[in-house]
Nucleic acid binder design. Structure first.
Lengths: 143, 143
DNA sequence: AACCAATTCTGGACTGTGTCAAGAATTGCT
DNA sequence: AGCAATTCTTGACACAGTCCAGAATTGGTT
């Protein structure tokens, strides 16, 4: 039975090959991030707690931080909102409703990663272009 | 003597035509935003305080919020940082150093406002595409 | 010039997100 | 098994921003 995508052992392997120890808390946090796309830290906490019984806030924050540093998950932090997390780490962007804060994924509008091109880089070494589309979702347009 | 760009009376006019009352606090906040590009709320506070003597935090926040709602100024809120403000309200983007958090303006890479084009809008009514380029500034590249 | 209603400012308490620090527990290697 | 390094727990703390009630200011009216 070959390990399928996102099975526990896959997550363990990913953690190990990133040089991180494998702990129940981290596995549970990763699973929570995968199951609740774009969830915020406290939602992750609740989810993990219902799985493990009890987890400290610090353990959750640590897991989220260390995993996003090692690019196992990705952190999104739109203006006026707490940080959110997702397990997609490929190049894509986000579309957020100004009214209800709902958030959906959007594939890169142009292609692979040409969004990195800036007119004048001011000498900076650019490594990422983050794009957030703001608008009104279908549900909130009816008002 | 024609009023030049950004003279006090211009700011007053802008406030009035947005339907806002003109107060010393708001004028000072606007001037602080103009003079210290990309400053955070507490820097604005300090600056305004040194001009008016004493101002409440609430007055500063209220002025910043109401003026950015009416698009007299623009609020930027990059991940992991408090809100910043600037008086440029035309279409442009930002480039931030991951190390020292320095922030510079970048003109829209493509043109007027075609950044609004998303592959699939999911039914959302998109009104803005916010682009943040992340990288390392010249000074921080030397380490 | 003075008045009045609406708006705005003050001052203080409060919320929510996230971090710091010290000791206990767990992990992974030999 | 045993040991060093890493990670988790608990509780205190820092910071940005908001809420509230009362005082002060603004700008239109008479």
């Amino acid at each position: 039975m070959a390990a399928r995508n996102n099975t526990p052992s896959d997550i363990s392997d990913a953690l190990r090959s990133a040089g991180l120890q494998v702990t129940a808390q981290r596995l549970a946090v990763y699973r929570a991030v995968r199951d609740k796309p774009h969830a915020m830290a406290d939602e992750i906490s609740d989810c993990v707690r219902s799985e493990l019984g009890t987890v400290s806030r610090q353990a959750v924050y640590d897991a989220l931080n260390v995993m996003s540093e090692h690019e196992l998950i990705r952190r999104i932090q739109p203006a006026g909102s707490a940080a959110r997390f997702e397990d997609r780490v490929d190049n894509h962007h986000h579309l957020i409703c100004r009214v209800c804060q709902s958030l959906v994924d959007i594939d890169c509008a142009i292609g692979k990663a040409p969004c990195l091109i800036a007119d004048d880089d001011h000498g900076y070494l650019i490594d990422e272009a983050e794009v957030i589309y703001w608008g009104t979702c279908p549900g909130c347009q009816q008002d």
